[in-house]
């Protein structure tokens, strides 16, 4: 493995640069763009905001080949979107232009309009943020934030939490299987399920907590509390286009908020 020969610099499996449109962009730039999209979706009144943002996000996702991921997000957001539509359709206070009447229920046009707008806004917001994590590895994001000065403690907390969640779920799954093998009923009626929670949650919680002491000492044994900036072995690229885009996004956010505050956006 020539690339891992000592003295040749960092091996390739460490530097592992992401590739592909938008995926290779700098993580902080992607964050800034997402912030701009979120602000645009909420601060720009009426339809232009959410629709423009949705268009931009969908186009970027398509170019980065992440449309399927967005589809999953859309699915996950469907219950709340449905709720929003239903509630506003039937219950928008002060609405007086009914579409039809079904006895006491009277869906209104303004309700439908408002509901669709709110749903679009919500979806734009979720999609903009989803795009960031669909095109960025958590490692890269944290490494980039570290380069910009985020402390090692914060990096550790976020990085370790993200790694720990799947592992805790696995452990919870093992405990569920073990309990089922002992005859615990996990499907039954409400009270049975409620009672079944303690034998499930307790081992997960206590198992995780008892490890804290060992993990603390292991970290200290690796000089975790040393002062000063830590060395970063891998940093995502930050090229000129990344920087330009980032600053443009930040300025655009300021501009939009300013215009809205000054009442110029109507």
């Amino acid at each position: 493995m020539a690339s891992s020969a000592p003295g040749a610099g960092l091996p390739e499996y460490v530097t592992r640069r992401a590739g592909g449109f938008y995926r290779s962009a700098n993580p902080s730039t992607k964050l800034a763009i997402a912030a701009l999209e979120v602000v645009a979706a909420f601060v720009v009144p009426g339809w232009p905001g959410p629709l423009l943002v949705l268009g931009a996000v969908l186009a970027t996702a398509a170019a980065a080949r992440r449309l399927r991921g967005l589809g999953v997000i859309a699915l996950a957001a469907s219950p709340i979107v449905g709720s929003i539509l239903l509630v506003n359709l039937f219950l928008l206070p002060g609405a007086s232009d009914p579409i039809a009447r079904f006895g006491p229920l009277a869906p209104t046009w303004s309700g439908l309009w408002f509901g669709l707008q709110t749903a679009a806004r919500l979806f734009a917001f979720s999609a903009a943020i989803a795009l960031v994590y669909l095109t960025t590895a958590v490692d890269d994001l944290l490494a980039d934030l570290a380069r910009r000065g985020l402390g090692r403690r914060a990096i550790f907390v976020v990085g370790a939490a993200v790694q720990m969640v799947p592992r805790t779920i696995e452990r919870a799954g093992e405990i569920v299987d073990a309990q089922r093998a002992r005859g615990m009923d996990t499907e039954g009626r409400f009270w049975q399920r409620a009672r079944g929670i303690v034998p499930l949650a307790a081992p997960v919680v206590f198992g995780a907590l008892t490890e804290v002491e060992e993990r603390t000492m292991a970290l200290d044994a690796r000089a975790f509390s040393a002062p000063g900036r830590q060395t970063l072995l891998r940093v995502p690229a930050d090229r000129a286009p990344d920087r330009v885009l980032r600053w443009a996004a930040v300025l655009a956010v300021v501009a939009i908020v300013g215009l809205r505050v000054a009442g110029r956006l109507g």
Binding site: R153, M164, T168, T216, F224
Partner: peptide
Amino acid sequence: TRVIVLMPVAIAINIV
């Protein structure tokens, strides 16, 4: 350090 170690554990407990 101990608190820094506890936090991700607590976050994982929250989420799971």
